[in-house]
Design a protein around this nucleic acid. Structure first.
Lengths: 211, 211, 211, 211
DNA sequence: GATGAATGAGAATTCATTCAT
DNA sequence: TATGAATGAATTCTCATTCAT
């Protein structure tokens, strides 16, 4: 049993080591895919970025496409978090907070999301499996939230699904430059201002009250 | 002089023929670039789609990249039209009309725009030269329009530039699925409903008045 | 008969025009072949240099190789002249004169000779048909001349064929830089000095007499 | 330390293997370049001659031109040797020996030299970098040698540089057919006869003494 | 597991030649 | 005859993947 315990520990350690290496490769791949696009990236470049020999990649991923799918998979977490937050909004202040947090994309995940979104643009499988499913989840939660508020009279008689879609669009407009790598991520102050503006626009519109 | 007239006409005809051919090639290229992405498209595929020998492409475009740049260039017209319209809004009804028209992307141009946007995602030159410049123009016109309305008291004290960005985002949310080829372009009725919803959300917000 | 005479004249003129055009094409081809080598020259370049459409070349030459063979053919004249001169040497002054004249390669023929020699270096047919045959003729005349002089006691008991070969080599050493286009052709004064040096070296050797 | 020693040895062996392979490729390339000329040779032919896949060539040379430059570089040794020998001549017998040795081009190097010389004919960079520099070195050594002999009265008052050039030409005349692949390299007996003839012609001229 | 040389299918591009006008 | 667009075979070079070490 002691021997077994030891070998189990060894196996665990090895698996950890392997998993860690896998993550390093994915991070390297995401960085380069995000920069040059999947199709224009060579496995040699990925290997170099991950500080590995080319052949070693194939001990971790069956082929180049698996690498892409794994990167797209890893883009999941931030969108998941956004979806979770969306369903727990209670009041105006809560809404601002949620928007504010959603604007705080963790920098290391940027490359994953950028890769996924860029590929979704031309790759139907990526689009269906990742973008549609995950954005769909966010959209459904937002729609449900809006439907409730319309029912309880807080919101006007608006189309909840369309409104949810437009809200996602506003988000996109704000996050896109950062995702594209054109501007640095907004800092905490900027996020608060953006969040308040978005929520203000969304709740109150832009007309002067009474006009 | 008759002879000259004739040779001139011949030259003209040839130039027309050449220009027509160029357009056919561009349309074919845009279609395939949009579908598979620039990097994943082969010149062989473009030639086949344009019903030409591979070598013939190079009588019209110096290389594959020139083909991409020409496609991106041709994506200009719809965005130009949108920018023009944005600067001629007078009242709420006018705003609805403009939004409605902007949602009517001419189907044959879809492939050009999709190609351009997909490449802007990974190609800095395309991003700068086409996407940034043209979206920038629309953004500036919108910002100017909002600034005026804030000045004359029609709109609340909001940040015009940020608001313009959010408006563009709402647009994007509505147009994106069509650009991506995921949904057919909205018909006239759908466009009117979308336009009124967007304008309503934008002007009035989603809160019940008085809340 | 008058009519026939007229048509004959027309035919003659046309043939002259055609022949002139052929020569223009050959001169253009020789110039570019000489500069870049036959294999690296495109028919498009030749056509452009001859101020013609590509297709028109093929009204004058069956294909690119015929063009090369025609250029090689035209390289004949200067070598023919050299061979003629070589057989008419009478005395030391005559020898100097002949050498001097042989050093005066007509500039426009340079391109033809350079092309021929460059191709002979890799093309067996050109080597046999042009270089070997023509250099061979010169070599035979020189050998015959030397043989005579050995027989009449003017020259020492040397190997006439080998000596002729060495003489041709001395020539080559002097003409090569010009043929290659590395130095301008020698002017009259330089030619005289070179001729006297060559003849002096050849006849007297380099040892101080009596040593 | 044992492990290190082993890995060092492995690395050494690999480097040796790579270097050997490089040389094989160069030899194959030189052979075909010499036969057909650089421009007319395809990388496919080189690969086939080296018994390799086409792609493998590019693990050893960045592109076709690098292959040519490497071949030209390898043509250096024989010319270097000739230059060395040229500066160590002492007397007539020594001169004959040097000439004799210079006529003994190692057969495997023939293809390298033929390639280099053929390309120098149309490629300015090859001409400058290889032919001019190396022939120039030989020429300078010969010139210096002749200048000394003129100074000490052994040689007549001749132009040393021109004489050196003519001597190189005599060499060329003798070696050219072999370099071109038209005749087999001379054997030892032939080399001695040639050397004595050349030296005899050079030192004594062809006139009967006293004439 | 790690390495990196070898592979060969496939990519972009060129170019001699043809042929309708 | 002159033109130059069209052709497609051939060329150079790349790159995902394999495999012996």
């Amino acid at each position: 049993m002691a021997a077994e315990g030891r070998s189990e520990r060894f196996i665990k350690r090895r698996q950890n080591r392997i998993e860690r290496r896998r993550q390093e490769i994915l991070a390297a791949a995401a960085r380069i895919f995000a920069e040059k696009g999947y199709a224009a990236t060579t496995t040699r470049e990925v290997a170099a970025a991950a500080d590995l020999a080319e052949g070693t990649l194939y001990n971790y991923f069956a082929n180049k496409r698996e690498l892409l799918l794994a990167v797209a998979s890893e883009a999941e977490a931030p969108m998941e978090a956004a979806a979770m937050a969306a369903s727990q909004i209670r009041d105006r202040a809560g809404l601002v907070t949620v928007v504010e947090q959603a604007l705080d994309l963790p920098a290391p995940r940027l490359a994953f999301m950028r890769t996924m979104l860029a590929e979704a643009w031309v790759d139907d499988h990526i689009l269906e499996e990742f973008a549609v499913i995950r954005l769909g989840r966010i959209h459904r939660r937002l729609t449900a939230f809006i439907t409730e508020r319309v029912a309880d009279g807080t919101f006007r008689q608006i189309d909840p699904a369309l409104t949810a879609q437009l809200v996602i669009g506003m988000f996109g407009a704000v996050l896109l430059p950062t995702l594209r790598g054109a501007t640095p991520p907004p800092d905490a102050d900027q996020r608060r201002i953006l969040a308040e503006s978005i929520v203000g626009l969304l709740l109150d519109g832009i007309l002067t009250r009474g006009s």
